[in-house]
């Protein structure tokens, strides 16, 4: 290439409508490809560079700050209707890098990489000294709370036996000693009232996911469990993923559009919410 040609990027305002349009396409892409955790919403556009692309088009480099919402990725609620997780609930932010190609006025995501991290304990304490912080998901009290809550939910279920899909977040409170958990579930081919060996139950071909919030409170001589689950509309049967080794239970947050995507059967498509059941 001749020196000095084609190597200059266009500096665009971060709040320019064109930048915001690119950012929105990027956010839609992230939320459509997340397979775990919660949907994220745009908080701030950090940087934007627009490079000329030969023979035609432009390449947008974007850095975005996002915030976690309270909608699980399996929840079909449009992200625009999802509430941002508040600081007092121990907010989680995302730091994303994108490259998008703009051709004929249309954006296409070429690269996306997001890392999420919870707010610091100090910051949470500043706004709410007594608020419980996020707890490790493998904490024994968290695991126990999820198991007890799922058992309580299944005991009340007149239909399918539900399996755990993912523990999404947990908080431990000292007074009264209690554990708050949020987790995703999926219906199996077993009947809840007749299950003897849950390991033999299989997820339905037509996936039916749910999302549960539960609190286990320790008390003298026992414990109380309160659980509420929202069951979403069934997901249509779609082809299974290719045997490329990418079909893992816990997908990476980094998303490479050039690589084959993990099981699309796990992605939400429905828009109607059924429930809550309990």
């Amino acid at each position: 290439a001749p020196p000095g040609l084609g190597l200059v990027y266009r500096e665009l305002n971060c709040d320019d409508p064109e930048t915001e349009e690119a950012a929105q396409v990027a956010m839609d892409y992230v939320n459509a490809h997340l397979l775990q955790g919660y949907k994220h919403i745009l908080n701030q556009i950090d940087k934007v560079k627009v490079w000329p692309r030969r023979p035609t088009g432009e390449l947008f480099e974007l850095e975005l700050d996002t915030l976690e919402t309270i909608c699980h990725v399996l929840d079909p609620t449009p992200v625009a209707n999802c509430t941002v997780r508040q600081l007092t609930e121990h907010a989680v932010e995302g730091d994303c890098d994108f490259r998008l190609l703009k051709l004929d006025g249309q954006f296409a995501v070429l690269f996306a990489n997001c890392d999420s991290s919870p707010d610091s304990a100090e910051d949470v304490r500043k706004v709410c000294p007594d608020c419980p912080l996020l707890a490790p998901l493998n904490d024994t009290r968290v695991v126990h709370a999820v198991e007890a809550a799922l058992a309580a939910f299944n005991a009340q279920s007149n239909g399918s036996y539900y399996q755990i899909v993912e523990v999404s977040r947990a908080q431990l409170a000292p007074l009264p000693p209690s554990t708050y958990v949020e987790f995703a579930v999926a219906a199996t081919d077993c009947v809840a009232k007749e299950v003897t060996d849950p390991a033999k139950c299989n997820l339905l071909a037509e996936k039916q996911y749910g999302f549960c919030k539960a609190t286990l409170t320790e008390k003298f001589g026992g414990e109380d469990v309160a659980v509420t689950c929202t069951v979403f509309q069934t997901q249509p049967v779609v082809p299974q993923p290719q045997p490329d080794g990418n079909n893992v239970a816990v997908p990476p947050l980094a998303v490479d559009p050039a690589a084959p995507q993990p099981a699309p059967a796990n992605l939400p498509a429905a828009v109607r919410v059924v429930g809550p059941l309990v």
Partner: peptide, 27 residues
């Protein structure tokens, strides 16, 4: 002939192209 700097008025608001506005809150 008096040579000097032209008087400067109050500076206008500085427009910073990036980062953009915060939509919710900053962590």
């Amino acid at each position: 002939v008096v040579v000097g700097l032209a008087p400067t008025g109050p500076a206008g608001p500085v427009v910073r192209p990036c980062p953009g506005r915060i939509r919710h809150f900053k962590i």
